[in-house]
Write a protein that binds this DNA or RNA. Structure first.
Lengths: 416, 416
DNA sequence: GCCCTTTTTGTGGAAATCCACAAAAAGGGG
DNA sequence: CCCCTTTTTGTGGATTTCCACAAAAAGGGC
C-alpha cells in the first residue's frame, strides 16, 4: 500500500510539498494558513480560474470568495472535520470546482489544502491521499505557526521599545529589525485606533482584520507592527516611496478603515489618527506622541477636530501645548479677552460665544448668525459691541488670529 | 559790612535757605538745579505769577518758559557769568519781572536762583546779596549733585542687575530698591527706545528730557530707572494702580514720545516698545526680554509690526519663536505650503504672494486685488487655483490660520 | 507660424455684506 | 408703574462677493 506517500515530508519546504501533492492528485493546489493566507501553491495550471489567480496575486483568498464561503457554511463545515470536502463551482465569485481539507491539531485549525479540480474530479484514492497529506503536514504547520508567534512576540516587544524611546537611533532600529526579520516601511508613520465600545474585543479583531486586508489593496502598504494598548491599537505603516502624497494616502486609509468599522458597528465607535511622515526611524517615538497628541486634541476639542486625523492637519491645535507653556511662563493674559469676559459677566451677555462662532465661520455673518439663531443685524450689532468693549480690530488678521487662538486656549484650559 | 549774611549756610537745608534769601531780597525766590528742576522755593508770595506757580506745581520750570528763555538768549547769558541778570517780564508765557543768577563751579553750572520781583525791583545791595548767596551755595549744591550722581550710578547698576536677572526675587529687588532709596513703580513695565540716527546723542538727550517731562503730565508716571545700552534706552515705568488700562496708557505714552521725537527730528528716527504689565518684580528680566522680542519682531517683519509697540499686541508674532523651535524639533513642514512653493517654482507664478496678501486683507477680495494690482476675478481665479493645488480649504479657520502662520514663519526663516 | 493650455479680464445676476436709521422688545432701577 | 438704556429686529440701498460663462491675452512646444 502507499502508506508512506509523503515520507520525505519533513525535509521538504512548503513550496516543494505543494508541487508534490499537486502531482499526486493531478490538479493544481494551494496551501493556506488558518487565516486563509497563502503559504504555498503548485506551479502547474496556474491560470485555471479567477479565484486561484487572485489568491496567488494577493497572497490571500479574496474577501469576496471568503464571504461567499462563510455564507454557504463551507468554511464552518471545513473547520469541523478532518475529511476532504467537495465544493461546487461558484462562478459569480470566480471559483471553480474544488476539494478542500483542513489541517487540524485537536480542535484548532492550522491551515487548509485546496485542490482545484480542473483536470479531472478527484478519485477516492486521491481523496485518501489528501487526508495523508493533511495529517502529515500538522507538525510542519504547527512549527511554522509557533515560530510565527514567537517572531510576532519579538516584534511587539521591539515595537514597544521603539514607541517608548528605548531604542531611538535610526541605525540601531534598522539593524534590530533586520535581526528579527521584519522589514520596516519607509517613509512611515504611526497610526492609532481607539475604541470605547463595550465589546472592544470584536472591534479590535475587525481592525486587525482590516489592517491585514487593506494592506494590499490600499495605497498604504506594509504593517509589520501592531501592538495593543488598553483600548488602543498602535500600528506602524507606510511604504511607497513618494513622500508627496503620503499625507493624502494616510488620510484615505484611516478614513476607509473608520468607514468600514462604522458600517459594521454603527455610530462612531472608533477614532483613528496618525503622526507625520518620517523616513528616519529616530522619529518613531515622536511620531507616536504626535498621534497621541491628535487623540488628546480630539478629546478636548471634539467639535474643532472633526475631520482631522493627521498630526499634519492639526494646524494651530498642534501648537496649543506650546502656547499654554509659554503663557504660563510669562503669565500672559489677552487683555481684550479679559475685557470681554468681564463684560459678559457684568451684563449676562454672550459676546464671547458670539465672537467665537463668528471666527469659526471665517467672518461669514450669514452663516454665523444662522448658527447662533439670531438675526444677522444682531450679530453685526454684537460685533460692533465687541470692538467697542475690547478694542479688537477685526480687520487686523493678527488680532483676529490671536483672539481665535486665545479663545480656543481658554476653552481648553476651562475643560481641564 | 554784611560780609557774612549767610554764615549759617552750611547748617540750613535748601528750603530754609530759600526762605532766608527771600526774606533778605524782599521777594519770593526759587532755587533750581542745572536742569531747571526745582530744588526749593520760598513760602511767601506763592501766587504771584503763572510761571512761578507752574514751576512749583510741576517741580520744574515749564517747557514753554524755558523755550522762550533759550530763544531770547537769557539762559545762555546766565550760564556765562556769575552776576545776577535782570529779565523783563514775558507775559505771553506767564513770566513776570525777574532777576536770576547762576550758581557755578568753574565753568559748570550747578543751579540757579530766581527772584520774582513782585514787591519791588532789587536794589544793588540786594543784588550783591544774591551774589553772596550763590557763591555760598556752591559747596552745598555740588555736594547735592555728587550725591545725586552717586545715587544714579547705583540705580543704574541695580537696574542692570535686574535686567540681566542677577537679582530676580521680588523681595530682594524690593528691599534693595529701598536701600538705594528709589521707589519702584507697580504695576510696571520695561520700555525700550532705539535709534540709529547718526547723532544718537541728541536723540537720547531729547528722550531723557521727554521721559522726565512727560512723567507728570502723562498717565504713566515714575521713571526711576533709565539706562542706556549702545543705541538703546531702557526704562522702567509704571504706577497708577489700575491694571486694566495699563496697556492703553503704555501705548499712548510710547506713541506720544515717538510723535514728539518725530516732530523734532523728522522721519522715523526712533523705535519704541515695551513688555507686559507686571506687579511682581520677579518679572523684570522677562519683561525686558519681552521688549527685546518686540524689537526683534519689528526688525524681521517691519510691515506686519506697524502700529505694534507692546508685547501684549504682538499677537501670534509673540509665539513665532516657540513655533520655530517646535517645528525644528519635529521637522515639521506644511505640506500645503510645500505644494504651493513647488507650483510657484515650476510655473513662475505668484500663488504664495497672492495667498499672503489675501490673508493679510482678512479675505477681502477687493482690497487684496487692489493691493496686488490685479483684477478681482484674477484673484478669485488664483484662489481657486490655490485650493486646487494645495488642497487648502479657505472656509476652515484652522487651515486658514495655520497657513497664515506658516507663511509668516517661512518669511521669517528666509530673512534670517 | 499654429495649437494648446494657462492665465487674465470682462459681463451679468443672485446672494451677502455693510451701513444708517428706526421701531420694537427686553431689562433694570427708582 | 414709568423711564431709561441696552439689545434685538426690521427696512432700504450702496457696495461687495460669489458664480458661471466667455472672450481675450500670454506663453510654451512643435
Amino acid at each position: 500500500m502507499s502508506e508512506k506517500p509523503f515520507s520525505q515530508i519533513e525535509s521538504l519546504d512548503f513550496t516543494d510539498l505543494a508541487d508534490l501533492i499537486s502531482e499526486r492528485v493531478h490538479n493544481p493546489i494551494t496551501i493556506e494558513d488558518f487565516n486563509h493566507r497563502l503559504i504555498a501553491y503548485s506551479t502547474h495550471g496556474n491560470w485555471t480560474d479567477q479565484a486561484r489567480m487572485e489568491t496567488i496575486m494577493g497572497r490571500r483568498v479574496p474577501e469576496t470568495v471568503l464571504n461567499r464561503l462563510w455564507q454557504d457554511g463551507v468554511i464552518q463545515q471545513l473547520m469541523g472535520c478532518d475529511d476532504p470536502i467537495r465544493i461546487q463551482a461558484k462562478n459569480e465569485v470566480g471559483l471553480g470546482d474544488r476539494v478542500a481539507i483542513s489541517i487540524r491539531k485537536g480542535q484548532g485549525v492550522l491551515g487548509y489544502i485546496w485542490v482545484q479540480e480542473v483536470n479531472q474530479p478527484l478519485s477516492e484514492k486521491e481523496m485518501q491521499l489528501l487526508r495523508f497529506a493533511a495529517k502529515g503536514m500538522i507538525p510542519k504547520l504547527y512549527q511554522r505557526q509557533t515560530k510565527r508567534r514567537i517572531q510576532q512576540e519579538k516584534s511587539k516587544e521591539f515595537f514597544w521599545e521603539m514607541l517608548l524611546g528605548q531604542v531611538s537611533s535610526h541605525q540601531e532600529i534598522q539593524t534590530k529589525a533586520e535581526d528579527i526579520g521584519i522589514k520596516l516601511p519607509r517613509p512611515f508613520s504611526i497610526f492609532l485606533f481607539e475604541s470605547h465600545l463595550p465589546d472592544y474585543e470584536s472591534v479590535q479583531k475587525e481592525l486587525v482584520y482590516l489592517l491585514h486586508n487593506l494592506k494590499d489593496s490600499f495605497p498604504l502598504t506594509q504593517f509589520p507592527l501592531v501592538v495593543t494598548d488598553q483600548r488602543r491599537l498602535v500600528v506602524m505603516g507606510g511604504g511607497g516611496d513618494a513622500r508627496l502624497d503620503f499625507h493624502e494616502r494616510s488620510q484615505r486609509f484611516v478614513l476607509d478603515i473608520l468607514q468600514r468599522i462604522q458600517d459594521r458597528f454603527g455610530g462612531l465607535p472608533v477614532n483613528g489618527m496618525y503622526g507625520m511622515a518620517y523616513s528616519s526611524f529616530s522619529f518613531v517615538q515622536l511620531c507616536y506622541h504626535q498621534a497621541l497628541a491628535v487623540l488628546r486634541a480630539k478629546k478636548h476639542l471634539p467639535q474643532e477636530m472633526k475631520g482631522i486625523f493627521g498630526y499634519d492637519d492639526l494646524g494651530i491645535y498642534r501648537l496649543l501645548p506650546s502656547f499654554v507653556e509659554k503663557n504660563e511662563a510669562e503669565s500672559y493674559v489677552n487683555y481684550r479677552l479679559e475685557k470681554l469676559i468681564r463684560y459678559d459677566k457684568d451684563n449676562q451677555s454672550h459676546l464671547l460665544q458670539t465672537l467665537e462662532v463668528y471666527l469659526d465661520c471665517v467672518g461669514r455673518v450669514n452663516v454665523a448668525s444662522q448658527y447662533l439663531h439670531i438675526h444677522p443685524n444682531t450679530l453685526a450689532y454684537r460685533l460692533r459691541r465687541i470692538t467697542e468693549v475690547s478694542g479688537l480690530n477685526l480687520d487686523d488678521p493678527n488680532q483676529r488670529i490671536s483672539m481665535f487662538i486665545d479663545l480656543k486656549l481658554m476653552k481648553l484650559s476651562l475643560l481641564q
